[in-house]
């Protein structure tokens, strides 16, 4: 009897995973055909399928491909990190930035710019500095959390303390360095606001390496199963033989690597890390982390790819230029989430 239930939900999971993968492929194709230059979707399709490209079409498809890949990877990473953090804190309102990685990253970047403006020149250096800042946030948060017992609640509270401290520090530093960063009508808070407009080919590698490492850690250590037990309480998890402190610290580390890499490459993108996991959970009808880890990565990916395509479409027809990605992810994702919530609440 119980065996049947499990195989039934497994079949549902496989079906959903397949469906979402197809949807991701379709969104990627759609994303490749939208852009600010006048290359027709037909030309793009022949370029992709038949490998017959004009020189200019190939260049355009190349650049869109880089952007779409970065969007897909960072969306997957954020939603994955969101699933882990929500499980870790047992809080459905937690998003991956709650560990404090974005504010420390911003603080370290602005300190570096203040010390030497040439940091701004090299994208690789900028990414390395931002990532180091994100890890610094993780180390601080986990240290404070472990000193206070290492529970999920203490992690949230330490994260809030670290975020508050470093967003204060980063605003002071940016205020001091704003003659370099924002000489004109631009306010300094726009720094690190997520966008894929300036990403380069090498960024795909950075993101892919972080995602692959994180996935390896997640599955080798069996984090999804451990988180399932952890949902029922720390005592329950430790009675099942899981080391709670090690579990919280590792899960927080993986989430920080995932979030820190996206902050360093594309900046802060809201909504995905918060809502991606919910969309995955509601559509799968389960909170089993073995399923939601995979499904949330796929839904996050799809949402971000579509949002990125929409920012380009808006840039092509309006006079605003590229909008921040986080705004558009919310516009696309929120109605869908609302629909699922209403449907889930009824069913």
């Amino acid at each position: 009897m119980s065996q049947e239930v499990i195989s039934g939900s497994r079949r549902k999971f496989l079906f959903l995973a397949l469906l979402l993968t197809v949807a991701l492929a379709v969104s990627l194709l759609f994303s490749l055909s939208v852009g600010t230059s006048l290359v027709s979707p037909k030309e793009v399709l022949t370029c992709l399928i038949a490998f017959e490209c004009g020189k200019s079409a190939k260049l355009v498809v190349d650049m869109r491909f880089v952007r779409a890949c970065v969007a897909a990877l960072s969306g997957a990473m954020l939603a994955l990190a969101g699933t882990l953090v929500q499980g870790l804190t047992r809080n459905p309102l937690a998003d991956p930035y709650i560990i404090g990685v974005s504010s420390t990253s911003l603080a370290v970047v602005s300190a570096a710019v203040l010390l030497s403006p040439s940091v701004l020149v090299h994208r690789q250096v900028l990414i390395a500095v931002a990532f180091a800042g994100a890890l610094l946030g993780y180390i601080l948060t986990t240290t404070i959390s472990l000193l206070s017992g290492g529970s999920g609640t203490s992690l949230v509270l330490s994260g809030i303390a670290v975020s508050a401290l470093f967003s204060g520090i980063s605003h002071v530093l940016l205020y001091l360095s704003q003659n370099r960063i924002a000489q004109l009508g631009r306010n300094y808070v726009f720094l690190l606001l997520g966008s894929t407009s300036g990403v380069l080919r090498q960024d795909i590698t950075y993101l892919a390496i972080s995602l692959a490492t994180s996935l390896a850690i997640i599955f080798v250590l069996g984090i999804p199963k451990a988180l399932n037990a952890y949902l029922f309480g720390e005592l329950y998890a430790s009675q099942l033989g899981y080391r709670v402190r090690a579990l919280t610290a590792t899960t927080a580390l993986v989430s920080s690597v995932l979030t820190g890499a996206t902050v360093a490459v594309v900046g802060v993108v809201g909504f995905i890390g918060l809502a991606g996991p919910h969309i995955a959970r509601i559509s799968a009808g389960t909170s089993d982390h073995r399923a939601t880890v995979v499904l949330s990565a796929l839904t996050g990916s799809i949402l971000t790819v579509l949002a990125d395509a929409l920012t380009r479409a808006i840039s092509a027809i309006s006079s605003w230029g590229e909008l921040p990605l986080g705004v558009v992810t919310g516009i696309i994702g929120a109605p869908f989430l609302a629909y699922l919530v209403v449907k889930g609440g009824r069913g």
Binding site: S56, S197, W320
Partner: peptide, 17 residues
């Protein structure tokens, strides 16, 4: 970038095209 208003963010595709 003349068709935009204020201080727009461009992307490489727009610039290259």
């Amino acid at each position: 970038a003349g068709k935009f208003s204020g201080w727009p963010v461009l992307d490489y595709e727009y610039i290259l095209s």
